[in-house]
Simulated assay, not measured.
Amino acid sequence: MISKYPEKSWSFSKYKTLMKCPRAYYYSKFLMWGGWERTASERSRKAYRLTKLTTIEQFLGALIHKYIANNITALKIKDIKSAINYIGKEFNKAVYSSYKLRKEWELDPKNYTMFYSVYYKNRNLFEDKLGKEIKEKTNVLLNNYFNSNTLKDLQNGIKIIEIDKEKNYPSFFIRDYKIYSIVDLMYEKNNEIYIIDWKTGKKSSDDEFQLKLYALYAYKNYNIDLNKITLINEYLYEGTFEKRKYGKNELLEVEKFIEEKITVMEEYLDDKEKNIPKSEAFFPAKTSKYNCKWCNFKEICPEYSESFINTNI
């Protein structure tokens, strides 16, 4: 039986949402909870549906990650043509779903695709040169994957420890909070451990923290010597990669950071043990052009106004 409130958990994306807009955080973590049930309130069901909206960039990134995981597992050879065909077919399905299967998506949003831009009608996917742009970007991403140092390692024979394919949502605990840290790929070679993070977008200031989180996960769950862990960002759009190693003191700083942010999260709770949130009013909306333009929840947020999008706030 599903619990009345979500589990006590923390992730970097969850923390970023709270800092960006507490109201969006409330909608995405609490109001949506149980919204997949037919007996849930209409507002909860709508909030749940809105968490399933995806942007074109997010969808492409997820497809590339899925293709890479399957390709590594099957040890398939380089085949750009079939890979691009696969991505193209999945995109066509998603576009059809977004435009033609809205009712089906509303009833079962987990198993149908709805693009944010279609739902909110802010872009016609059949205009401009979107299809060509997606194909060109896909070609760049896949070419750089097939020519990556990581794939060369894999082809020379390694032991895969983890790969993000089974959707088992790996985690570890800090205090009594589950800390999610989904590793794209972890493997062993010559008694060394490599953790790979495939990036389909541009470099971000968040990238280093995420690698530290992966190192902390490996250290806690596998008790791996940190001197034997190499963390790698494979930037597939740019065709570059960056290697890093971290010491125990650096990971202790990450753990302390997470503990501090959990304390911040708990300020929004009525019951810390049961993870019961305060009322919606205690989660203020941080309205701005930047925050509101791509917010999934503007349809149900009473603070939202089109003026936030149409003016230079």
Rank of each mutant, 00 (worst) to 15 (best):
L231C: 14
E273Y: 09
F209Y: 13
E162M: 11
N275Q: 01
L216V: 13
S181E: 02
K203N: 07
Y237K: 08
I163H: 03
Y237R: 05
Y237F: 14
K256N: 13
K272H: 10
I276M: 05
K203F: 01
E273M: 09
R244T: 12
K199R: 02
L151C: 03
I224N: 06
D206H: 09
Q155A: 11
G239M: 00
K212A: 04
V264T: 14
L216P: 13
Q210S: 02
K248D: 14
W198L: 02
F173Q: 11
D207W: 02
E234W: 00
I232W: 01
S204T: 11
Y237S: 08
I258G: 07
L211D: 06
V183Y: 02
K256C: 02
Y177R: 01
S148H: 00
S205M: 06
K274S: 11
E267S: 15
E242N: 11
K202I: 09
E208Q: 11
E162W: 12
D225W: 05
D153H: 15
Y180H: 13
Y214I: 06
K248Y: 14
A218E: 07
E267F: 06
A215V: 12
I160H: 03
S205Y: 06
K199Q: 04
D184A: 01
N221E: 15
I179R: 01
E259H: 01
D197Q: 05
I232G: 02
I158Y: 09
I276V: 15
T150F: 00
D225C: 02
D207Q: 08
P170N: 07
N156A: 11
E234H: 00
L151D: 05
M265E: 15
L213A: 06
L236V: 05
K261F: 07
D225G: 03
I262M: 07
L154H: 05
D197C: 00
M265N: 14
K220C: 01
E234T: 04
L231Q: 10
A215H: 07
Q155N: 13
L231K: 04
V183P: 07
N147R: 01
N156D: 15
I195R: 02
L269T: 09
Q210P: 12
L151V: 10
E260G: 01
T240H: 00
E234Y: 00
L269A: 08
S204Y: 03
L151G: 06
L151I: 12
I229A: 02
E253H: 08
I258C: 08
Y246F: 15
F257A: 04
G157F: 11
